[in-house]
């Protein structure tokens, strides 16, 4: 098999004495959509944040397309990178937050163009053209000059998705992208994500939307207490789970 796009290997992470990730292994192939489900506090957000090095891990490694995010390998040693280099590597990973975290003082267009220009040093013309294209893709062509506070939650989250895509990332991570939305706005965001998946974007999605997992995911991962309990195609994990813990969780959310 080719190098996986995302390779999480033996990752451990503790906050003080609380061990939040206890040896997580996860591989995501290019173009694949992986959905992570699991009870609150099981470490899903921590895992996503470890993948793009927003959290430093204690043991194990994370590689994106064969390259470590926070470290440089030389022989059998890993050297921690300086913040500047970590920031540069991070632009290969898009991140969509539960609460959008758009920059409120910048217009929609400025939100999207900021990082490609300042972090990746790409020419402004190219980025502006891409922004127009991306805003169209998420159905917000008319809102380029609006400020985030003037948009609905669903529109804000779609801007956040466009902002992540503008980096042309190798993988996009979604941490409960629809959990802060009113029920009637969830659909519009999931539709955009489904279109992305069809277009071949590699994605890791933490969500409680089991319907989305069933329809869009190539792999569903069930996490509990800092470990991956089981993973496989949605039909298997969601309909014929092999573990009692998965079954107990699914009976609560379905």
């Amino acid at each position: 098999m080719s190098t996986p796009m995302v390779d999480v290997h033996g990752v451990h992470k503790s906050y003080g004495s609380l061990e939040v990730l206890r040896g997580v292994d996860l591989k995501v192939q290019p173009g694949e959509v992986t959905v992570i489900i699991g009870p609150s506090g099981s470490g899903k957000s921590t895992l996503l944040r470890s993948i793009n090095h927003l959290e430093k891990i204690d043991r194990g490694y994370v590689a994106i397309d064969g390259e470590f995010v926070g470290y440089r390998r030389s022989g059998d040693r890993l050297y921690e990178l300086r913040e500047r280099d970590i920031l540069r590597r991070r632009t290969q990973i898009g991140f969509v937050f539960q609460n959008f975290h758009l920059f409120p003082h910048l217009t929609v267009r400025e939100n999207v163009t900021e990082a490609p220009v300042s972090a990746q040093g790409r020419p402004r013309d190219e980025v502006e053209a891409l922004t127009t294209e991306l805003l169209e893709q998420v159905g917000l062509s008319g809102k380029a000059d609006a400020y985030p506070r003037q948009l609905s939650g669903g529109q804000q989250q779609r801007v956040a998705i466009a902002r992540a895509l503008a980096l042309r990332p190798k993988v996009v991570l979604f941490d409960e992208p629809t959990s802060a939305l009113d029920p009637e706005l969830v659909g519009e965001v999931l539709e955009v994500m489904q279109a992305l998946a069809r277009g071949g974007t590699t994605m890791i999605v933490v969500t409680h939307e089991i319907g989305f997992a069933r329809e869009v995911a190539d792999t569903v991962v069930f996490m509990d207490a800092g470990q991956i309990v089981e993973h496989g195609p949605p039909g298997q994990v969601l309909d014929r789970p092999g573990h009692d813990r998965t079954r107990a969780f699914l009976s609560k959310v379905l």
């Binding site: 793009n52 913040e83 991140f95 975290h101 920059f103 972090a119 980096l167």
Partner: peptide, 20 residues
């Protein structure tokens, strides 16, 4: 969350401070 989003986007540190 603003700083976290800026860091997640890889925006350089000085730019995070002065632009965001």
């Amino acid at each position: 969350g603003q700083l976290e989003a800026a860091a997640a986007l890889g925006i350089p540190r000085a730019r995070q401070i002065f632009r965001i």
